[in-house]
Design a protein around this nucleic acid. Structure first.
Length: 134
DNA sequence: GCCAACGTTGGC
DNA sequence: GCCAACGTTGGC
């Protein structure tokens, strides 16, 4: 079991949309590092759902339901997507500020590479964030 | 709305 | 293959 974090701008596609759709193709990734992470996702892996912008918080948990395949929104074979499904909203959103303040999370790519939109999360980091979420 | 950080592009 | 210029992301 691996853990991941994906970012989304709630104005474009937020947690509420995912809950409504239940299962969505995570398309539109056009960054190689993020793409490589998509390719490493396995069915059943858990994913933190992060809202960028005003919220800047981890808000919920999703999971991988379909492993990578050609992103249907482009013909370029370089790009892939996966399908993710809503699992549950966190009891409490964990803000970027709190994450930055937690020394256990200082190596989290969310902090170290603010612009990456799909990133791995270690088991320790996953647990730390879950604990903060209550 | 600004700007820093980063990735990508393209000229050489 | 280097690097300057540019565009985009995302926090503040």
């Amino acid at each position: 079991m691996n853990y991941w974090l994906v970012k989304s701008d709630p104005d474009t596609y937020g947690w509420d949309e995912l809950v409504k759709e239940k299962n969505t193709a995570w398309t539109g990734v056009r960054n190689y590092q993020a793409r490589n992470n998509l390719k490493l996702m396995k069915k059943g892996d858990e994913i933190f759902f992060y809202h960028s912008g005003n919220e800047s918080s981890v808000v919920a948990l999703a999971k991988v339901v379909k492993e990578f395949y050609q992103d249907p929104t482009t013909k370029e074979p370089a790009w892939v997507c996966v399908n993710i499904a809503a699992v549950k909203k966190l009891n409490r959103a964990v803000s970027l500020q709190e994450i930055k303040a937690n020394s256990a999370l200082k190596n989290l790519l969310l902090v170290r590479n603010g612009r990456l939109s799909v990133m791995p999360v270690s088991e320790k980091e996953f647990k730390a964030i879950m604990q903060m979420a209550g």
